[in-house]
Measured scan of single mutants.
Amino acid sequence: GTVHVGDKTYHFPTPDAAKKFAQEIAKKLNLQVTVKNGTWQVH
């Protein structure tokens, strides 16, 4: 899975790992999470 946070991109071996990371970052930074075609965006 891929997660975009601002101008950074993180790659994870599984979709679940990407989802978990995106949700944790969003919670920590009080941001929104959207997913499109398996790519997570934190914004």
Results as ranks from 00 to 15, higher is better:
residue 39 T to G: 08
residue 24 E to W: 15
residue 23 Q to A: 09
residue 14 T to F: 05
residue 18 A to N: 00
residue 8 K to C: 12
residue 37 N to Y: 04
residue 33 V to M: 07
residue 41 Q to C: 06
residue 37 N to G: 10
residue 12 F to N: 00
residue 16 D to I: 09
residue 7 D to E: 12
residue 23 Q to N: 12
residue 20 K to V: 10
residue 23 Q to V: 13
residue 29 L to G: 06
residue 24 E to Q: 11
residue 36 K to W: 12
residue 5 V to I: 13
residue 18 A to W: 02
residue 9 T to A: 09
residue 1 G to T: 13
residue 12 F to S: 00
residue 5 V to H: 06
residue 19 K to V: 06
residue 38 G to C: 05
residue 21 F to I: 02
residue 12 F to Y: 03
residue 31 L to Y: 08
residue 6 G to R: 06
residue 12 F to E: 00
residue 20 K to D: 11
residue 13 P to H: 11
residue 17 A to C: 04
residue 24 E to N: 09
residue 20 K to F: 10
residue 33 V to R: 00
residue 31 L to P: 01
residue 6 G to L: 14
residue 35 V to W: 15
residue 29 L to Y: 15
residue 26 A to M: 03
residue 14 T to E: 06
residue 34 T to W: 06
residue 5 V to W: 15
residue 43 H to A: 12
residue 28 K to G: 05
residue 13 P to L: 07
residue 1 G to S: 12
residue 30 N to D: 08
residue 30 N to F: 05
residue 24 E to K: 10
residue 17 A to M: 12
residue 5 V to A: 04
residue 39 T to K: 09
residue 29 L to N: 07
residue 17 A to P: 01
residue 15 P to V: 11
residue 1 G to M: 10
residue 37 N to L: 05
residue 42 V to I: 09
residue 12 F to R: 00
residue 41 Q to I: 15
residue 40 W to F: 14
residue 32 Q to M: 12
residue 19 K to Y: 12
residue 11 H to R: 09
residue 8 K to H: 10
residue 35 V to A: 08
residue 33 V to T: 06
residue 43 H to R: 07
residue 24 E to S: 10
residue 43 H to G: 15
residue 17 A to Q: 12
residue 10 Y to T: 01
residue 35 V to F: 15
residue 40 W to M: 05
residue 28 K to L: 12
residue 40 W to G: 02
residue 4 H to L: 15
residue 38 G to P: 03
residue 27 K to P: 01
residue 11 H to T: 10
residue 24 E to V: 08
residue 38 G to H: 11
residue 12 F to T: 01
residue 18 A to P: 00
residue 31 L to S: 08
residue 29 L to A: 05
residue 9 T to P: 04
residue 22 A to P: 00
residue 2 T to H: 06
residue 11 H to E: 07
residue 13 P to M: 09
residue 16 D to S: 11
residue 15 P to T: 12
residue 35 V to Q: 13
residue 10 Y to R: 01
residue 15 P to Y: 14
residue 17 A to K: 08
residue 40 W to P: 02
residue 42 V to H: 02
residue 35 V to M: 14
residue 40 W to I: 08
residue 6 G to Y: 12
residue 16 D to V: 08
residue 30 N to E: 06
residue 27 K to E: 13
residue 32 Q to D: 08
residue 12 F to C: 04
residue 17 A to F: 05
residue 27 K to G: 09
residue 22 A to C: 03
residue 32 Q to A: 12
residue 13 P to D: 14
residue 19 K to P: 00
residue 37 N to M: 04
residue 41 Q to G: 05
residue 21 F to K: 02
residue 8 K to F: 10
residue 6 G to P: 02
residue 22 A to Y: 01
residue 27 K to T: 12
residue 18 A to T: 02
residue 34 T to V: 08
residue 16 D to E: 14
residue 10 Y to V: 03
residue 25 I to F: 06
residue 18 A to H: 00
residue 36 K to R: 09
residue 22 A to L: 02
residue 36 K to S: 14
residue 15 P to M: 13
residue 14 T to I: 03
residue 37 N to P: 03
residue 4 H to G: 04
residue 1 G to Y: 15
residue 9 T to F: 11
residue 30 N to S: 07
residue 21 F to R: 01
residue 13 P to S: 13
residue 24 E to G: 08
residue 13 P to G: 09
residue 8 K to M: 10
residue 3 V to L: 02
residue 21 F to P: 00
residue 13 P to Y: 07
residue 9 T to G: 03
residue 11 H to K: 09
residue 5 V to E: 01
residue 41 Q to N: 12
residue 6 G to A: 07
residue 26 A to Q: 03
residue 11 H to P: 03
residue 36 K to A: 13
residue 34 T to R: 05
residue 22 A to K: 00
residue 28 K to V: 10
residue 1 G to H: 14
residue 20 K to R: 10
residue 16 D to F: 07
residue 13 P to C: 06
residue 15 P to H: 13
residue 24 E to M: 13
residue 7 D to K: 13
residue 29 L to M: 09
residue 5 V to S: 03
residue 35 V to H: 15
residue 23 Q to P: 00
residue 6 G to N: 08
residue 11 H to L: 10
residue 18 A to Q: 00
residue 41 Q to V: 15
residue 33 V to W: 05
residue 30 N to L: 05
residue 40 W to D: 02
residue 27 K to R: 12
residue 15 P to I: 10
residue 41 Q to L: 15
residue 9 T to N: 05
residue 22 A to I: 03
residue 20 K to I: 12
residue 39 T to M: 14
residue 27 K to L: 13
residue 12 F to I: 01
residue 9 T to Q: 08
residue 8 K to I: 11
residue 6 G to I: 09
residue 17 A to R: 07
residue 39 T to F: 10
residue 34 T to A: 06
residue 43 H to N: 10
residue 29 L to E: 06
residue 36 K to H: 15
residue 43 H to K: 08
residue 19 K to Q: 14
residue 3 V to A: 04
residue 14 T to H: 07
residue 19 K to A: 15
residue 42 V to N: 02
residue 16 D to N: 09
residue 38 G to N: 14
residue 41 Q to P: 03
residue 23 Q to K: 08
residue 14 T to S: 10
residue 6 G to W: 12
residue 2 T to V: 12
residue 3 V to C: 02
residue 17 A to D: 11
residue 30 N to T: 04
residue 23 Q to S: 08
residue 26 A to G: 09
residue 15 P to G: 10
residue 19 K to W: 11
residue 43 H to W: 11
residue 32 Q to P: 10
residue 20 K to Q: 13
residue 43 H to T: 12
residue 41 Q to R: 10
residue 17 A to L: 13
residue 18 A to Y: 01
residue 1 G to L: 11
residue 38 G to I: 03
residue 10 Y to K: 01
residue 12 F to L: 04
residue 23 Q to Y: 15
residue 16 D to Y: 08
residue 11 H to I: 10
residue 30 N to Y: 04
residue 6 G to F: 15
residue 28 K to C: 05
residue 1 G to V: 08
residue 17 A to W: 05
residue 10 Y to C: 04
residue 14 T to R: 04
residue 10 Y to P: 00
residue 12 F to M: 03
residue 36 K to E: 14
residue 33 V to N: 01
residue 35 V to Y: 15
residue 2 T to I: 13
residue 25 I to K: 03
residue 33 V to I: 12
residue 20 K to P: 00
residue 34 T to K: 06
residue 21 F to N: 01
residue 39 T to D: 12
residue 15 P to L: 13
residue 12 F to D: 00
residue 23 Q to C: 07
residue 27 K to A: 14
residue 9 T to R: 07
residue 25 I to G: 00
residue 7 D to I: 09
residue 37 N to R: 04
residue 35 V to T: 07
residue 4 H to T: 13
residue 8 K to G: 04
residue 19 K to G: 10
residue 2 T to P: 02
residue 36 K to F: 13
residue 25 I to T: 08
residue 2 T to G: 03
residue 5 V to P: 00
residue 5 V to Q: 02
residue 27 K to F: 11
